[in-house]
Amino acid sequence: MLKKLVFAFVIGITSSAIAQEEDLLALVNEPEVGNVKVFATFKTTKIVNAQSIETVKKGDLDFRITHRFDDIAVGGSGHTMWGFDNSMDIRYSFDYGVTDKITLGLARSKYNELLEGYAKWRFLEQTTNNKVPVSIAAYTNMGFTPKDKALIYSGVDKSVTQKTAHRFSYFSQLIIARKFGNWFSAQIMPSYHHRNFVKYAINADNNAEETNGIVSLGVGGRIRFTKRMALIVDYFYNVSKYRQNNKANPFYNPLAVGLEIETGGHVFHLNFTNNGAISETNFIPNTTSNWLDGQFKFGFNISRVFSF
């Protein structure tokens, strides 16, 4: 018995001595590092065409200027300096971080003279220990076009009642994103777009009519190849029978690739897209140009964040 106790005594001494001399830091119960929220899944609030999972930080204002020029590689495009003489769309936007998770924004586009108000709420955040494997955000956007009536109703039967409500369109989506390691991020975006007013049209090849609502599935990704540069890609697949194999009025799904350059405070995007329009409300239903026909455009985006 005594032996055992002496033994325990010795163990007690040595273990406390070890704890004291060699492993002080092991005594600290610091919050587990593995359990932190993943940040910078994407670098800005948009990928190229698509909204990204990112929101603006609380109290910050993200001012964005986006440009799309004209087709680069169609016949005669040399006369417009490969599209640079024309601007298909220009968009200015202001995104404000109400909280770290909620962003409200306003924007104005040249295309359809579109005025937008939108909100994004990132309600789930991926954690580094994978307890939460993805981040999820909800994005919703309301658009209003102040276009001249004659333009909105051109080619429309006179008997159609003209309403202010016809000027509104909506876009909503869920953004599910994951950052894989430090160099690759991806997201998918089930989306729904609704226009209050569409002109009657029919696809002669499958007898499908144009619809007010269009469901689409977007995918996007970012590959960082240096600390400050990344390749960005996004694509929307539109589930619209009217747009499928429409030989008389062909439609294409918007595909965008870009180079992202981050300088700290500023983020620059240099993009190529087949769609001319910048806002979802415009490019989801109206993309009629095809990458394979050389109908892709150069575009750029500048994002500048102001902190208050």
Binding site: L24, L25, V28, E30, P31, V33, V36, F39, A40, K57, K58, G59, D60, G97, D100, K227, R228, E262, G264, G265, V305, S307
Partner: peptide
């Protein structure tokens, strides 16, 4: 001795914290 997690530093601006940690 002291050990501190880099991502526990809080900045005035959230973006600064992001840049600090990431780049």
């Amino acid at each position: 001795e002291v050990q501190v997690s880099m991502n526990s530093f809080k900045f005035k601006s959230g973006l600064m914290g992001e840049h600090f940690n990431e780049t």
